[in-house]
Design a protein around this nucleic acid. Structure first.
Length: 212
DNA sequence: CGTTAGATAGTCT
DNA sequence: GACTATCTAACGG
């Protein structure tokens, strides 16, 4: 029995509270190739009435998973190439979510490295020669220190995993394994709307955070 | 260190 | 037709 957060955990907290409480929890993918996991060190909240939220206008084909029940996984494609993952929050019919921006790898390091290297070979033409060496400090840090990278490292795909349940599916979140840390609250990254809203949270001093 | 340009698809208006 | 919740290398100080 995997030690995973139950449905009530996602239902009982509002989106911004959950964005903060997910810090220090472990994000896991039990894939056919093996397990891989990391501690959540950076999140962003996207809520109703927030112009940066994908559900701001209405439900569409892309954002449909955001309107599902709390504890659903929302995977979307960004910048023509990468994918990002969100933990859907709020009741069914409400489109809110927590973006997972960075992980501190804990399990399946070799599998993560393999996936990143495979992605280089089949991805951008300019980066086909790139490799990650996770036995170096820099290589290890670069496995999951950004929303696009962690999706590759964990082997999550939009077509396979968008809309899957964190409560019953192969991708889930374990309760906090890290509790003794200070949290930084700041504005979100890479957006052009809602730039002043302080909905980004990260573990102070953690070297796997995408950027200070 | 810092900032910036370029690669690159699918979905929405 | 326009618009991104990114990543990487290359450049300048």
């Amino acid at each position: 029995m995997p030690d995973r957060l139950p449905l009530a955990y996602y239902e009982d907290h509002d989106t911004l509270t959950l964005s903060q409480q997910l810090l220090g929890c472990e994000f896991v993918h039990d894939s056919p190739e093996g397990p891989s996991a990391g501690i959540i060190v950076e999140t962003e909240g996207y809520v109703t009435g927030d112009p940066a939220c994908h559900a701001y206008r209405r439900e569409t084909k892309r954002n449909a998973a955001m309107f599902g029940p709390a504890g659903t996984l929302y995977v979307y494609q960004i910048y023509n190439h990468y994918n990002c993952i969100n933990v859907v929050t709020g009741p069914k019919g409400v489109g809110e979510a927590v973006l997972i921006r960075a992980l501190q790898p804990t399990e399946g390091i070799d599998l993560m490295t393999l996936r990143r290297n495979e992605a280089f070979k089949t991805g951008f033409a300019r980066y086909r020669q790139n490799t990650i060496d996770s036995s170096t400090a820099d290589g290890f840090r670069n496995l999951c220190n950004g929303p696009g990278k962690l999706v590759i490292s964990l082997g999550i795909s939009r077509t396979e995993h968008n809309g899957s349940s964190l409560v019953t599916g192969p991708i889930y979140i374990r309760p906090r394994v890290l509790t003794d840390f200070d949290m930084v609250t700041t504005t979100r990254i890479g957006i052009t709307q809602g730039v002043d809203l302080p909905y980004r949270y990260y573990i102070q001093g953690n070297r796997f955070v995408s950027r200070k």
